[in-house]
Design a binder for these strands. Structure first.
Length: 873
RNA sequence: AGGCCCGUAGCUCAGUUGGUUAGAGCGCUACGUUGACAUCGUAGAGGUCGGCGGUUCGAGUCCGCUCGGGCCUACCA
């Protein structure tokens, strides 16, 4: 076995092995219990980032764990066409070639999109494989593939026929740069420093001037009214009259509407029904005419008048202000900080625009999604997200699902020449329904998230009643970032419940964001972006996986420090070398399928006991999705219990110095089960090592990936052995500490005297050879330490080191004095506590007993220190 | 404006239902090439658990207030 630990030398080999053997292809139907996770389909826009690596690691960990537990485990991979995002990328590429999608035309543009998709989809597959993902690639899906497209059409038609999807003219968020409508969620509010302009409007047929304030003066060109609160006495006399719009001269009737806040500004507000959401509602309520003065591209329309038509909306703002000022209509302008919606994808301020779009009414579905969580059918982990979930769903609004893009699912709606709309699964059905073949299909495509919302079941063949769907739906887990809780998770739940009558999964594990070592968000501008592939190259996939899993604490972002990853690479090295040691020492021993602790020495019984308890705890932590805790237990068992203690304890037995029965078998068996326990997090390393263990076939004939996941074995658990070894461990640590304190060079020949309490004495004599070995002692005796020996007390054992003259340097004296001070304080506290009547009567008896015992120990220890100080005088 | 989360060692974080002497990794100090591993071993330094108040025999943990940081939701002209 190679002395050098090099993950790169074996990781690709096992990835190919797993793929070629088809171990991760799920069978349906199956006798086993199903376990299913759908991958959150990455966008086909580029390469995977650490967020994907994190989520994929957790999904793979869960899938491998359940698979080893005997579940029919399916982790279904796939990708998302990501309408706007991908179209933007390709348009950018076209721009570099000096062309555009308009120039190419829709058909050729979409061809280009598919080429792009193929390239990036390959990339994503390769990256997932490098991470060790145990996906079932035979079931890979893409949101625009044939089956999923059909699912989208079926869902759309059904929702339409149920009256939940409709087409209508409403105010939407419009992105002038993208030239499409976007949903509320795609709008990001940003604080903007702007100006609040106070404008004076003349009241018609009167000398009175009223004042309105606005941050968007250019919209005044589209004003059609002035509104006040119905109960605002100050302006009641104006009702029935009209104001005159400056620059334009249009009559603006006064209307009373409760949407106006009389406390704010002058209590009068200009009404621009086509360019402000509130004004749109006011306009509807009062039947106001509406003018669109700003067009799709953010350019003023002819309605804005010849002076402004063709100007960009921001240029128009400047121009309008100039003219108002010149005309004496601008009373004042003041600095004003306010929130402005920006397009999340393209960054520019969104233009509220009235437009004909398709909407999906979410109200009823939202209620059922709320109930799913409240009634426990759906669990959000961590549960701090429940309130956020409820708040959003309780205030849900219709979802604008149409997009003026070319990359996506074209809306299955057709229009006849005479203005009728037909919604159908395909053209043939549309023709039949319309009674004519003179049909024009809607040009728009659906919001990407519409198809994503169907992902958990469309990937399994819905709407067909497929075997896969019957076997694996509803799925079990969803693992994704909290940033798409509304975009995706909520919509999947709503659509799933509505279309399949089932929650699409019962548990959602929401991860945090992967940040840099200092906790900063990774960004290109900051230059702190870490690439998963580079990290895999440097540390290995298993180290990356272990790092991400162990940092996934509930509700927290993940600060990824390469130094820390180096630490987990070192953990891999530790496992590698421990295996190397075991293999070189165990002779003819083999891994045992069944191993009875009867007749074994305490050290062996101890490690078996620790292993059983570790398996139990790891299992429990995984059940609770505490990947951090599960990894922590594995790490400490392997490095601490197994390497630091048990392997060291084996050395004198294996060398023949102090033989014990069946040490080799125990070592191999413990190692094999440890590799099994570790496999879901570190699949490559464990598979590599496992195949080298003689007798590993007891787990599985071919692969560790299908070997049973170790469980607790109560017959291995042994409180007496744990207690005995506990004394040994404490004693060894304390003697080492004393040796350092005394400044004794490591090679100094020492004699250790032990005087145990009755309780600690049990079996101590058997441990003497181990003590001698671990502490490199000259001699160890069960006897009272001589007068001049340095003495101390630990775990009920008084011990002394005879090391000739004991020099006590100044540093050591200070340390001991410091400890005395600390002890004095703690003793005082403990004394006060055990003298407190309230404590004695109300605290549980065991806590009181513990406190008393601790007090006694502290007093004894104080004695020892005083003696040592005195002896050195 | 409302909601949520965080504040524990130099750094990044654990700390489950309140109960011994508050932990880990990294970093730091000292010593160590004992035949698995220097990607290692041994020992050690380092914390008024943001602050104030309360409940309790007992608070990092529960409650109130407060300061600092982050995130989400929101049609205030």
């Amino acid at each position: 076995m190679d002395k050098v630990f090099d993950p790169g030398s074996y990781e690709p080999r096992w990835q190919a092995f797993w793929r070629e053997r088809g171990y991760f292809v799920a069978q349906a139907p199956s006798e086993r219990r199903p376990f299913c996770i759908m991958i959150p389909p990455p966008n086909v826009t580029g390469k995977l980032h650490l967020g994907h690596a994190l989520q994929s690691t957790l999904q793979d960990l869960l899938t491998r764990w359940r698979r080893m537990q005997g579940y029919e485990a399916l982790w279904l991979p796939g990708t998302d066409h990501a309408g706007i995002a991908t179209q933007l990328m390709v348009e950018r590429a076209l721009a570099e070639e000096g062309t555009s999608r308009q120039e190419l035309g829709r058909e050729r543009f979409v061809e280009r999109m598919w080429e792009w998709k193929e390239r990036y989809q390959d990339n994503i597959r390769r990256q997932l494989e490098r991470l060790g993902a145990s996906c079932d690639w035979s079931r890979e899906r893409f949101t625009l593939d044939e089956g999923l497209s059909r699912a989208v059409r079926v869902a759309f038609v059904r929702l339409y026929r149920e009256g939940l999807v409709r087409r209508g003219e409403y105010m939407v968020n419009w992105s002038p740069l993208l030239d499409t409508a976007i949903s509320d969620l795609e709008v990001e509010m940003k604080e903007v420093r702007g100006q609040l302009y106070h404008l004076a409007y003349q009241v018609e047929g009167s000398d009175e001037r009223i004042v309105v304030a606005t941050t968007r003066p250019e919209t005044m060109l589209g004003d059609t009214a002035v509104a006040m609160h119905p109960e605002d006495e100050r302006y009641r006399h104006l009702l029935g009259k009209a104001a005159l719009l400056p620059l334009v001269g249009r009559r603006l009737p006064f209307v009373a509407d409760p949407a106006v806040d009389p406390e704010l500004g002058t209590g009068l507000v200009k009404v621009t029904p086509f360019h402000d959401p509130t004004d749109f509602e006011i306009g509807r309520r009062h039947g106001l005419p509406a003018l669109q003065v700003i067009g799709r591209r953010g350019v003023m329309t002819v309605e804005a008048g010849p002076d402004f038509a063709g100007l960009d909306r921001f240029a128009a703002r400047t121009e309008v202000i100039e003219r108002l000022r010149a005309g004496g209509f601008l009373l004042k302008s003041e600095d004003h900080v306010h929130n402005v919606g920006h397009s999340q994808r393209s960054g520019e301020p969104v233009e509220p625009l009235v437009s004909t779009q398709w909407f999906c009414d979410m109200q009823r579905m939202a209620e059922r999604a709320l109930a799913a969580v409240r009634e426990g059918r759906l669990e959000l982990v961590p549960d701090m997200w429940v309130k956020t979930w409820e708040h959003w769903l309780e205030n849900i609004k219709p979802w604008c699902i149409s997009r003026q893009l070319w990359w996506g699912h074209q809306i299955p709606a057709w229009y006849t020449g005479d203005g009728r709309t037909v919604v159908a699964h395909d053209l043939a059905e549309a023709v039949r329904l319309a009674g004519t073949d003179e049909l024009q299909q809607d040009e728009d495509v659906l919001d990407t998230w519409f198809s994503s919302a169907l992902w958990p079941f469309s990937t399994l063949g819905w709407p067909e009643d497929t075997t896969d769907l019957r076997t694996f739906y509803p799925t079990d887990m969803l693992v994704t970032g909290h940033d798409i809780l509304f975009f995706w998770v909520a919509r999947m739940v709503m659509m799933g419940v509505h279309l399949t009558a089932k929650e699409p999964f019962h548990t959602v594990h929401l991860t945090g964001l992967v940040r840099d070592a200092e906790g900063h968000k990774m960004s290109k501008t900051r230059g702190n972006v870490l690439d998963p592939e580079e990290l895999i190259g440097e540390f290995g996939a298993d180290a990356l996986r272990f790092t991400l899993a162990t940092l996934d604490s509930p509700g927290r972002d993940i600060p990824l420090d390469p130094q820390r990853m180096a630490g987990y690479r070192a953990f891999g090295n530790k496992i590698w070398n421990a295996t190397r040691f075991v293999l070189s020492r165990v002779g003819e021993a083999r891994v045992q399928g069944e191993l009875s602790p009867a007749g074994l020495a305490p050290a062996e019984r101890w490690v078996l006991s620790r292993l059983s308890r570790t398996a139990d705890e790891v299992g429990r932590q995984l059940e609770a999705f505490r990947f951090d805790e599960a990894c922590g237990r594995l790490y400490h068992f392997f490095w601490g219990d197994l390497c630091d203690w048990y392997i060291e304890l084996c050395k004198p037995a294996l060398s023949g110095e102090a033989p014990r029965p069946r040490v080799g078998e125990v070592l191999l068996t413990v190692l094999e089960r440890s590799l099994r326990l570790l496999h879901p997090v570190m699949p490559h390393l464990t598979e590599e090592l496992w195949h080298r263990l003689p007798g590993h076939e007891v787990g599985h004939a071919e692969t560790l990936a299908l070997a049973p996941y170790p469980q607790r074995l109560p017959e291995w658990e042994d409180a007496a052995a744990e207690a005995q070894l506990g004394v040994l461990v404490a004693l060894v640590s304390q003697v080492r500490s004393m040796r350092t304190d005394l400044g004794l060079p490591p090679r100094t020949p020492l004699t250790l005297y032990l005087e145990p309490s009755d309780e600690a004495a049990a079996g101590l004599d058997e441990q003497l050879p181990l003590l001698r070995f671990l502490l490199r002692l000259e001699d160890v005796r069960l006897a009272a330490p001589p007068e001049q020996a340095a003495q101390d007390l630990v775990a009920g054992v008084r011990f002394g080191l005879e090391a000739g003259a004991v020099p006590l340097d100044e540093q050591e004296r200070q340390r001991l004095t410091g400890e005395l001070d600390k002890l004095a304080e703690q003793i005082a506290n403990a004394e006060a506590r055990v003298a407190n009547a309230g404590f004695l009567s109300k605290a549980p008896a065991e806590v009181v007993a513990q406190q008393r015992q601790r007090l006694a120990e502290m007093r004894q220890r104080r004695e020892q220190i005083l003696q040592r100080l005195a002896a050195a005088e």
